[in-house]
Every structure is written in C-alpha cells, then in structure tokens.
Design a protein around this nucleic acid. Structure first.
Length: 503
RNA sequence: GGCCUCGUCGUCCAGCGGUUAGGACACAGCCCUUUCAAGGCUGAGACCGGAGUUCGAUUCUCCGCGGGGCUACCA
C-alpha cells in the first residue's frame, strides 16, 4: 500500500498498566509522523478497561513520554476534541449498549459460565490434547437460566457468536493478505462480568466513533484481528486500514519487557539522551527511507515516511547505535542549547550524578560557556557532562599517585616533570593556551623529556584524570592559581606515596 | 501442541531475477595527535537449509529448520 494522501486520523491507544516501553512508543511515533505528513490528526486514547491493572503512574508516564519526544496530540485526554471522552472507562455505557444491541441482533449472547468451569474445561481439553477453547455452552442458556444465575450472583459475560466454519481475511498494509480459519476461534468475551468491555469490543467502537482511518499497532494484534473483523461485521460497520508494525525485541530476542534493562523512553531521557536522537533512532527501527540516510531531522522523516517501507521483520533493540547517534545530535547542537540541556544534569546532587555538592548551585553559566567548546564534541550523553567537566568547577582534584606517571615514566621522573612544571606554572605569563604550549614545549626540551611525557603528569595533576580535553586550553580555563595549587598538590601525593612504599 | 508471522554481516537498514551483495553502529589496524574524543583511510564480517520455477536465484514457490507473536472475563 502506498501512503494515504488524504488526512489520516490515527490513534495511539495505550493501556495504563505499566511504563510504555520504546516498542510501544514507536508505534506512537509512526502514528504521529503519518498524521503530520498527511496533515491529519494524532489522537491519544487511554484504554483503561482492565480495572485491576490500572496504574496512575503509568498513565502519567505515557503523557510524559509523548511530551518528551515532542509528539503533540491533536485530540486526547487533557487536550479535548470533538470525539471525547478519550478515556475508555468514561465511555462504558456505549460499550454496554453495543453489547446489548449485538445480543438483540443475534450476534452475541449472555454467558454464565464461571471462571472455575472455564478452567475445568481447559484442563480437560489440555488433558485430551485438544486446543483449549471455549465450547459455546452459553449459546444454549435460556434467558430464564441467565436471570437465575444473575440473581444467584454468578458472573455474567457477553460473548460473540463465532461461526464454526468459513474464514476471514484482511489486507494488512505491511504484511499483505492474511487469512484465518474461523474454526480456530471460539466465542470470545466482549463484555466482562464487571460490565467493562474487552479490548476487542472497546477499541472498535471507539475507533469507529472517533473516525479512525488507520489502526497502527504492534504485531501482537494480528492474531486477534479476525475477531475484530467479526465484530465489525456484526455491527455492520467497515473496518479501518490495518497497519501492523513488527515488534521490537530485546537482546534475547524476546518481546521487549522490563527485564531488558532500560526500555522506556523516560529512562533514556534520564540517561542523558536527546529526544531528537531517540526519535530519529526509533524511526529507523523497522523503517528506512530506502537509501542510506540515517541522520534525519524530524521534518525530513515526516516528509519521507511511508507505510510501505515499514519492515516485515522484528528488530532487536541495541542502544549502542543510539549512543552514537546521540553524540551526532549533541555535536550538531549549538553551544547554548547544549548548555541549557546539560545544566539540569550537572546541577543534580552529587549522589544523583551531578557535580560535587561543594560546587555552588546554580552553576556558573558563563564559566560553563567558556569551557563547553573544549568538551562539546567529546560528549555522547548529557549525563557525561559531570565527569567531563567536574575539574573545571571543583576547588581541587585528588589524583591517585599511580595515575600521575605517563607512559614509560617512573615516580622519580614524574616528580621531576611536575617540579619543573610547577616552577614554570608559577611564573608563566600570559596564562593563555598558545603561550603555555610554547613554554611547556621548551621546558620539555630543557629537561630532556618528550612533550607527551611532560604533559601527561600535568594533565593528571590538573584535571585528576588521564583523559581530558587539550591540556593548555584546559589549564587556561582552570586558571593559573588553581593550576599551581593542583600541581603542587600532586607533587605532595607523589612524595607521600613514595615515602609509604619505601617503608 | 494449534494458528499467524518473520528469516541478508554481532546489531540496525539497502537489495525487490543477472551486483566484486551496499551503508551505518560496534570491532581491528593505520593516519592525524600531548591524552581522550572527533575526523580520514583500510580491514574483518551476512544471504538458515533443501527442493523446485528459470538461461540465471539473496530475490519467486513449496517443504524443512530456527526465531517471534497469539492461544485470558490482559491489553
């Protein structure tokens, strides 16, 4: 199928039973993109018909995820629209009415089989190596019998009559034609005993009422689509276009779930990923523009997206490439944007991954702006700002003695390098990168060391780490006074370590 | 077990009857370089198997194998 040219009405219809994971969010992404492309509507509907599994935090997380990813909705809870309410529990009566209409038209019936009886039935079938299937016994219950059961307080459900022969088929926009034999299906529940509808009934009624043109949902729904087709038939309405997108699997190839580590969009936010990068990356999981383009702005994805280029096969989620892409997005950001994004992460408490608590908050934005060019291209995650920049903000650093020597340097040589470095550091002026470099190169020659050998201990002494931005820019940004202190301090660390090991 | 579905480098994606099977991430080496990155170059790395169809199959069909999904008064 080629892309729709007229505006689509698509919905993201999560059930608030857990934090939505990225596989789930990706279908929202596809919906949103298609709505943008066709200038249609992206609708969010909360499917909270399972009262026992309802989770208010999950519902919050759903909207937070959408907002973080920039997937603005056109209609939905909190947003409004002409087809509300957009929460299924608030639409209960329409489902009840429809179920009763289906009974009246002979397409459905009340069933008073108890869960225990159902369980026993399945056990028997399993024992006889039959597929577990409801046997349709409720079809033969008289209204009187049902009424009796009702009075006795037995749970009453409504089931759809499924013909025992024939087949249904539909054309899925990504899979093509799919056919199911009706004899494989049993009479399934459409209205539960608490008078809440099952997903099957509810979503169809809502999609119909809300004018949904394309049902974009995960692959796991393919096997229940024949049920949905049957309900449409019984109701005398036309089914929408079906677009089943392949699942996203975890590293173990199983359907993504909590045990796969970070799987929700919000976790990626907290890990320091950028929404644009995640958006871009997720779109590429199960879809490609057809050429080798990978880094694409939102607008380009919107322009190029097409249903017929959605993949057939499930994708395994691997965040390595996402990290790379996040780095690309960070490098493409302006310094000011980066600072704005970085600040909240760096200002968290030390325990939460922020700068040492001794550093005053709010963080000095001007100073950050001064040093950010030194680390900009080195960052892959927003959370890395802290460890990459801490030594600029801290009062002092405390390198371990064994980290101070550079390659092929012993303690004595390291000390010699640092002592010489300290002397120069005290007097050198101006304290600017180019001048520092010239002076220190000259010093290296004078004390007969390779530049790298001299620089390495200085780097560790001034930053506390062996990996850091270019040394002389770094020193200049740290400032002469603190550099002197730090080198001096490092010499002390080296000497006391030597004294200890000499004992 | 039954039904549905998928099967190209470790991973994500190209390929839609004829290609030295392409790109990206990751990996290795080299270059650049005061470290780490970034960047450049190079390398290694895949058509699940078997039958058919065809002059010719990674591509089409069937079977097998493997993966996944569903098989609830959950969605």
């Amino acid at each position: 199928m080629t892309n729709p040219t007229s505006p689509v009405r698509v919905r993201y219809a999560p059930s608030p039973t857990g934090i939505p994971h990225i596989g789930n969010i990706r279908t929202a992404l596809f919906c949103w993109v298609l709505a943008q492309q066709t200038e249609g509507q992206f609708i969010v509907r909360i499917e909270d018909t399972d009262r026992s599994r309802y989770d208010a935090d999950a519902e919050k997380a759903i909207f937070e995820s959408l907002e973080w990813l920039g997937l603005g909705l056109d209609e939905g809870p909190g947003k409004g629209g002409n087809y509300g309410p957009y929460v299924q529990s608030e639409r209960q009566q329409t489902y009840i009415d429809a179920a009763h209409r289906l009974i009246e038209s002979g397409h459905a019936y009340f069933d008073d089989t108890t869960p225990e009886q159902l369980h026993a039935l399945r056990e028997r079938q399993r024992a006889a190596k039959q597929p577990p299937r409801y046997d349709g016994r409720g079809r033969h219950r008289s209204p009187e019998e049902i009424e009796e059961s009702r009075k006795a307080g037995l749970p009453i459900t409504v089931r759809l009559k499924v013909p025992d022969h024939g087949s249904v088929s539909f054309v899925d926009a990504v899979r093509g034609k799919i056919t199911f034999e009706l004899k494989e299906l049993d009479d399934f529940v459409i209205l539960k005993s608490d008078e809440m509808p099952t997903y099957h009934l509810a979503h169809i009624l809502d999609d119909q009422a809300m004018g949904i043109t394309h049902v974009i949902r995960g692959d796991e729904w393919i096997s229940s689509t024949p049920r949905h087709l049957l309900i449409h038939q019984a109701l005398g309405i036309e089914p929408p276009e079906y677009v089943h997108v392949p699942l996203i699997l975890g590293k173990d190839k199983a359907k993504l779930s909590k045990r796969h580590g970070a799987t929700s969009a919000l976790e990626y936010r907290d890990l320091g990923f950028l929404p644009d990068a995640v958006f871009n990356f997720m779109c590429l999981l199960g879809w490609s523009p057809g050429d080798d383009t990978e880094v694409m702005a939102r607008e380009e994805i919107v322009k190029r997206f097409s249903i017929d280029r959605i993949n057939d096969s499930p994708a395994t989620f691997d965040s390595e490439k996402l990290e790379w892409m996040n780095g690309v997005y960070i490098r493409n950001m302006s310094e000011d944007d980066l600072i704005t994004q970085l600040l909240p992460f760096m200002e968290r408490s030390e325990a939460e991954g922020g700068l040492p608590d001794s550093v005053a908050r709010p963080i000095d934005r001007d100073y950050l702006k001064q040093v950010i060019p030194l680390v900009h291209e080195r960052l892959k995650l927003l959370t890395e700002g802290t460890e990459t920049l801490d030594f600029f903000f801290a009062d002092n650093v405390n390198p371990a003695a064994e980290d101070l020597p550079g390659r092929k340097m012993d303690a004595e040589m390291t000390e010699r390098a640092l002592v010489a470095a300290l002397e120069l550091c005290k007097d050198v002026s101006p304290f600017e990168p180019e001048h520092l470099e010239a002076e220190y190169r000259a010093l290296a020659e004078k004390i007969e060391m390779k530049p790298g050998q001299l620089f390495s201990p200085i780097r560790v002494a001034t930053t506390g780490k062996s990996f850091a931005p270019p040394l002389f820019d770094t020193m200049a940004a740290i400032g002469q006074e603190r550099c002197v202190e730090r080198i001096d301090n490092a010499i002390g660390i080296l000497r006391s370590a030597a004294a200890t090991s000499a004992d």
